[in-house]
């Protein structure tokens, strides 16, 4: 599904050179739920950005469905992000001035989908996260957990093959965090959506079926977890 080969990421300023990722090789298979753990600043988010084609690696390459993306144009990258990838962020990144359903429709806006079809799919996605009752609300009227569920619905609306989640439960208390986690697990098991999730929370990570640990920009462990743990 997504393959990272010899990824290096170096940030340069005039005086300092920071290595964010060093020789990372990771292959995410279709249908997996991978969690990535590590202390702050270990490069997890950079890795997720590179996977999500939001950032270019300094060297090495990203291969999606067997296709290297190095030579892709801005337009081709945008199309891949739009059709294959869904994002969920720690701070939700909802647009304040749009209602819940309009927020969920966003990824479809960048495709040739009719307005009524957009609305239909958005409502379906909201139903999956249990927010059918709040489609006309604005983000400021929702709790944190509800906002994150809107964000997940938005990721789902585009029917992506993979969801990249950057600490989706980081801003939430444990009850809400569990709710979000349940939704993600259900998606993975029932619909077979591939999920890569960066997290700080050991308990959350243990619920997934593969755990990758990072330290100082390097991959230090990669273990398959037993599915029966759920």
């Amino acid at each position: 599904m997504i393959q990272l080969q010899d990824i290096e990421k170096v940030y340069r300023t005039k005086t300092i050179e920071t290595v964010a990722l060093h020789r990372v090789n990771l292959h995410v298979e279709r249908g997996e739920f991978v969690s990535i753990m590590g202390p702050s600043g270990c490069g997890k988010s950079t890795l997720l950005n590179i996977m999500g084609l939001l950032d270019d690696p300094s060297s090495g390459q990203v291969i999606i469905d067997g296709q290297p993306v190095k030579t892709h144009s801005d337009k081709q990258l945008a199309r891949l992000r739009n059709e294959k990838i869904g994002f969920v962020f720690q701070s939700y990144h909802l647009i304040h001035d749009l209602s819940v359903v309009d927020n969920v429709e966003l990824p479809l806006l960048y495709r040739n989908v009719s307005a009524s079809e957009r609305r239909k799919r958005a409502l379906a996605a909201l139903e999956k996260v249990g927010l059918s009752a709040r489609t006309k609300h604005f983000p400021s009227q929702l709790s944190g957990g509800q906002r994150q569920r809107v964000a997940i619905a938005r990721a789902l609306a585009g029917q992506p093959e993979i969801i990249l989640a950057d600490e989706p439960t980081g801003n939430l208390d444990s009850v809400m965090g569990d709710e979000i986690m349940d939704i993600l697990l259900r998606l993975n098991q029932e619909e077979g959506t591939t999920i890569v999730m960066v997290t700080h929370d050991e308990n959350m990570a243990l619920k997934t079926n593969r755990l990758v640990r990072f330290f100082d920009g390097q991959q230090v462990a990669d273990s398959r977890l037993v599915e029966a743990q759920i």
Binding site: R81, L106, Y110, G158
Partner: peptide, 16 residues
């Protein structure tokens, strides 16, 4: 800023 980042992540091209 963050809205722009989000839209890009959701598949908007620079032109869009």
């Amino acid at each position: 800023y963050s809205e722009i980042g989000l839209r890009r992540a959701l598949g908007a091209t620079t032109r869009q």
